[in-house]
Design a protein around this nucleic acid. Structure first.
Lengths: 134, 134
DNA sequence: ATAGGTGCAAATGTTTTGCTGTCAA
DNA sequence: TTGACAGCAAAACATTTGCACCTAT
């Protein structure tokens, strides 16, 4: 729906590079607002619109990924390698986890349907160690 | 994050029952607006706020499920049994598919982490038969 | 030089909410 | 009878966009 294959030219601006660096250096899968606040520490006049535009651009370029996990806002991940997510239903924490099924799920799906599958995501919902105790 | 275990009392109003019926009788995983328009055919003065409130309530009750699939709006599913979804990147179509991995993914995750996993979702993104041709 | 990017503010689109009256239990 | 719900409209919230200026290439 959103991922046009864009071979358009693009510039490496300070804002864009810094946003990318922020995402590559955190594991918290932050929302836009958090990225914006981080970015302002380095580039005080950066605007929220610029952050949104760059995230969308970096996503198109395959350098970051948008996570739609059921929160009222998107979260962002600087890690585009295949991996899954653990989402805490209570505190909203998101952790990476590697569970690559041995079965060929894509093959199964394509044999059963007429879809051409490009990728799949597995999200685990539950409670993190801090929250499950309470 | 959103799924409080609500054992609160609730009424079976005409609006609520009709919204539930609409969702149980479609396979298109519709957005709220579509449900609203359907509902107005039967209950012309039903309000959009009522549709939203009832969907959230039915979701709490475990009778329907909210789907956050990366569209700018949520979609809704009247089928709460374990199943996965195929999402067309071009036209936005969403289809059900049954691929229950034979492996115990939840077990794998719980052994690797300190999470208590309640459920997981697998979403397949690609192109439907109509769209992949073009 | 120029196409793409930035900042700012306004606009958009989705979802929630306050309030008053109504209805299921 | 009464507390949950409905309708309506306003508000809240995340995200996008128009415009004038700027800058990476």
């Amino acid at each position: 729906m959103k991922n046009e294959n864009s071979n358009q030219p693009y510039y490496l601006t300070r804002q864009r590079l810094h946003i990318l660096e922020i995402l590559k250096n955190t594991k918290i899968h932050p929302p836009v607002e958090w990225i914006y606040h981080q970015a302002r520490k380095e580039i005080p006049h950066i605007s929220l619109g610029t952050v949104y535009r760059n995230l969308n651009r970096l996503n198109q370029l395959g350098l970051v990924q948008r996570l739609s996990l059921g929160f009222p806002f998107d979260r962002w991940d600087g890690d585009t390698s295949p991996h899954s997510h653990l989402i805490c239903k209570k505190c909203g924490k998101v952790l990476d986890i590697n569970v690559q099924p041995k079965e060929d799920l894509v093959g199964q799906v394509e044999r059963k349907t007429k879809f051409k599958v490009e990728n799949f995501k597995i999200d685990f919902h539950g409670f993190c160690s801090d929250c499950k105790a309470k």
